[in-house]
Design a protein around this nucleic acid. Structure first.
Lengths: 339, 339
DNA sequence: CAATTCTGCTTCATCGATTGAGCAAGCGAG
DNA sequence: CTCGCTTGCTCAATCGATGAAGCAGAATTG
């Protein structure tokens, strides 16, 4: 096993030799505590200049191995195919860097096995803290982290072992459903139950949104038709198939829908355009998620936008304060359009 | 500075003590080359079982420090706010994992300084290879990598120092422009020059797309109006402002546009809907990029979808074959709708 | 039966950075 | 001139994993 032949990397020992000093002086200078270590400003400057000239780059592996904290912060995220998770990741990286942490993010494609594997990999890389975003089994991840003495936080979907930051799904869904119900009533002159499409029936967010959906119906004095709650998964094909087979079964679909994510909306829209179920007028839609192009699709769509900046502020507040109690923080989402 | 108090992590030394053997035996067993190191199957099994029971996790920092290859592969990416980069990252992670590599991805928000900082950070983490996606200065990154003896590959935007994989922007733009020109001619009965909006005039992709745009005009015998080539940057606001001030200047805008990315399209669409420039009929649009909801916006939009799977196959082919010559591989994009 | 080979381990140096402990020179006080 | 303090460094152990080299004891060979 040979070293990379091309260019052996410059180490603090090389710099020490060049500067005619010791490696420990170099180390002290390069990580800024040379005052504490009583290195003269002269030597400090010489070493700094040399490091610059030689293009020295710290070997994090060696540094992390020696220190107690790695300053690496991990995040796992289900998908990169929508604005919500995309902005979570961007915001996360920005805020991590502001705190002098190195963010590493990985996408698990909603695959439970990959989620666990990814969490283990992050622990191997000695992350100080792991954020599980939209995880299918947050508690499993929390357990793995806790066994390694690593802090964990849940985002988007809550768990019961560590703190969680999620949207106020009930309130968001309540308001969204209200608007779609009233849009339908305004246009079609009658109160009628809506269709709910998308999401996993077992996940907390979906069940809270269904609860909001029901509450808005109750408020309006409209009975929810249980056949019309399709928690079929998030994927576009699943939403499309669910709605297709429902249409085959019941004949006529409602003039209003609650769609649980832009991803599911993709399938719903596809079906609406392919089938000739709504030849005259588009149904009124409410989408629990936000996308700029969906907003342009027409006036018949209302959206709820999750407040990503506030959610991540809450996440970092937990991290900064070292809170570990498994409380759930709910951030109100933003209802985009004015009905 | 104290160690994490809670749970000190299990190391190979702990396992060695528990198994009554040496750390090197444990190491040999756990990384699978115990046959080569002549460890008995019996001991191997005992160690494996113990590791399982104790929830042992390899310390990658220590392991990487000792080995010559880190098996970490880095990628920098400009943004997570569109399907193109999102699918690049997902595909990259999947393919990296298939090869037993650990992917680390970071987003630089089109900030040149952050790009360099991110590249340096990745080198500190001893990546074996760095993929610079849509970098503003790929050659700078390649130089930094080369100084550290690390391989680099450019994706989406080409450089001159290391291999690059990009879309065939000229061909894609040519075909897209042809379609929009012919859509306009069909509807409005006259050949007229289109508007080009979005992208940086200095980047290779944009200039190739402008070249394709011009070639299609030439082919159709239509003169390109130089005032109508707005390479104003990618951001929605920039596209919106550019088009707004152009409208103020020239009065009437063309009935067809070539929009250079979905991100710029966001601004263009916003302007179209806010201004009353096209009260009767929407202009025909061609977008060099793909998004499912844009596709639903109407028949007046044509899209070119970059072939992400083939692009990443090409990237990994370069990596697997250790090619280093700075050739540019152009992957034909897919023209989505049939005009 | 001695010489050699094979088996199944252990020992120890090493990767690069960090940090507590320690050492020598200089300087001021007594 | 000596004692003690400060200044400005160096030394060496350490983090955890890896693998070349080496070393007993058993098995095989001539």
């Amino acid at each position: 096993m040979k070293r990379r032949p091309q260019t052996k990397r410059t180490t603090i020992y090389d710099l020490a030799e060049l500067a005619g000093t010791s490696a420990s002086a170099v180390s002290a200078v390069l990580n800024g505590n040379w005052k504490k270590r009583r290195i003269s400003a002269q030597l400090a400057e010489r070493i700094t200049r040399l490091a610059e000239e030689q293009g020295y780059a710290l070997n994090m592996q060696a540094s992390v191995l020696r220190r107690d904290r790695s300053k690496i912060i991990g995040m796992i995220v289900p998908k990169y195919d929508n604005r919500y998770f995309g902005s979570i990741v961007e915001q996360f990286e920005t805020m991590a860097r502001e705190r002098g942490l190195f963010p590493i993010v990985t996408c698990t494609r909603r695959d439970p096995a990959l989620e666990i594997e990814a969490a283990r990999a992050m622990l191997s890389y000695q992350v100080d803290c792991l954020i599980a975003t939209g995880a299918t089994d947050p508690d499993r991840i929390a357990d793995i982290c806790s066994a390694a003495g690593v802090r964990a936080v849940n985002l988007d979907l809550p768990g019961s072992r560590v703190p969680s930051v999620i949207s106020d799904n009930f309130a968001g869904a309540l308001e969204l459903t209200r608007r779609v119900l009233s849009n339908c009533e305004r246009e079609f002159g009658e109160k009628a139950p809506l269709l709910f499409v998308g999401g996993r029936g077992t996940d907390h967010n979906t069940s809270e949104r269904v609860r909001g959906f029901r509450a808005a119906h109750a408020e309006a004095g409209v009975a929810v038709d249980e056949l019309l709650v399709l928690t079929c998964g998030y994927a576009p094909e699943k939403a499309e198939n669910a709605i297709k087979s429902l249409a085959a079964k019941v004949g006529t679909l409602p003039r209003g829908m609650f769609v649980n994510s832009t991803i599911s909306l993709e399938g719903v829209m596809r079906w609406i355009r392919r089938s000739s179920h709504y030849p005259d007028r588009m149904p009124h839609l409410g989408c629990f998620d936000w996308d700029p192009f969906v907003a342009m699709l027409g006036d018949h769509i209302e959206m709820v936008r999750q407040d990503v900046p506030r959610m991540l502020e809450a996440v970092f507040e937990i991290i900064d304060s070292s809170a570990t109690d498994p409380k759930v923080i709910e951030i109100p989402p933003i209802v985009e359009k004015i009905g």
